[in-house]
C-alpha cells in the first residue's frame, strides 16, 4: 500500500518533508516512526488524514500521515 508521510520541524532534518512511501498492508504508525529512526519519545501530534491518532493505529492505502515533534521549551 502507499502512504503519504509528511514530517514537520526537526523531523525533516536528514529525512524528507513529504514522501509517498510503500508499506505492507496494515502497517502500524509506530513501525513507520521506527523505520524513519524517529525516537518515539519525541513524537508529538500524529495526524492521520487530519484526525489525531496514536502510534498503535494501523494504516490503509492512500492514507496521509503527518508527524510532529513534541515542542516543550519556553
Amino acid at each position: 500500500m502507499q502512504v503519504t508521510v509528511k514530517l514537520f520541524a526537526s523531523f525533516q532534518t536528514g529525512r524528507f518533508k513529504i514522501e509517498v512511501r510503500d508499506y505492507p498492508d496494515q502497517t502500524l504508525i509506530g513501525t513507520i516512526v521506527r523505520e524513519l529512526n524517529i525516537p518515539e519519545e519525541e513524537v508529538g501530534i500524529l495526524l492521520l488524514n487530519a484526525v489525531h491518532t496514536k502510534l498503535d493505529q494501523s494504516l490503509s492505502d492512500g492514507d496521509l500521515l503527518a508527524i510532529f515533534p513534541l515542542v516543550g521549551g519556553g
Binding site: A9, S10, E40, E41, E42, V43, G44, I45, L46, K54, L55, P69, L70, V71, G72, G73
Partner: peptide, 8 residues
C-alpha cells in the same frame, strides 16, 4: 503522545 521527559 507525551510519555515523560523533554521535547525536541
Amino acid at each position: 503522545n507525551w510519555s515523560g521527559g523533554k521535547g525536541i
